[in-house]
């Protein structure tokens, strides 16, 4: 689950309009703040999470699912029926550019289910350590990509000086 962009904007505006704005005395600052609130409101229905980021998450979840399902199958561990159709869905190369957040959630949930299953049956899986290492490698690649999205935190000490 992610907090939606709509929720972020709505909550930011709620605090700006009801808590910050009434305590701003300076005319120019008050006007700028009210325009910022208005702009954020207008943006609310125009922005969404980046599709390439959602797609990366989806491809990683799908790759983990496929990897573990092969291992489970090879080691005669039953794969739940509701997972099967996720295995049969697109290969990572064929994933559409516009994966929805709901599709991602479904794929991540399926991937998590087989991960849990893999650990429940770890003693039954011959090459468990190797599979675990490969899963870890996929997850590490994903977190590395995501690190690029972060920007430095605002420095309050500078604001206060």
């Amino acid at each position: 689950m992610k907090v939606s962009i709509k929720t972020y904007i709505s909550n930011i505006n709620d605090v700006l309009a009801n808590i910050v704005l009434p305590s701003v005395d300076m005319g120019f600052a008050k006007i700028q703040l009210s325009y910022a609130i208005d702009m954020l409101n207008q943006l609310q229905n125009r922005v969404e999470y980046r599709h390439d980021v959602i797609k990366d998450d989806y491809i990683a979840a799908k790759a983990i699912l496929d990897l573990i399902c092969v291992a489970l199958n090879d080691n005669h561990v039953d794969i739940p029926k509701d997972i099967i159709h996720h295995i049969e869905s697109n290969s990572p190369d064929g994933v559409a550019d516009t994966i929805s957040e709901d599709e991602l959630t479904r794929m991540e949930t399926a991937s998590t289910k087989v991960l849990d299953l893999m650990y429940e049956n770890s003693t039954q899986i011959n090459n468990f350590n190797e599979i675990e290492k490969n899963v870890l490698s996929l997850l590490r690649q994903l977190t590395k990509k995501k690190a690029g999205l972060r920007v430095p935190t605002i420095n309050l000490e500078l604001l206060e000086s």
Binding site: M1, A60, A61, I64, T105, E108, T109, S111, T112, L115, D116, M118, Y119, S122, E132, V135, L136, L139, L142, T143
Partner: peptide, 19 residues
């Protein structure tokens, strides 16, 4: 309860730490 257990990274890490 917060809806984040379905992230594969969390699932894998929790399983690993338990085991």
């Amino acid at each position: 309860r917060a809806g984040y257990r379905s992230l594969p990274i969390i699932a894998m890490s929790i399983n690993w730490l338990k085991q």
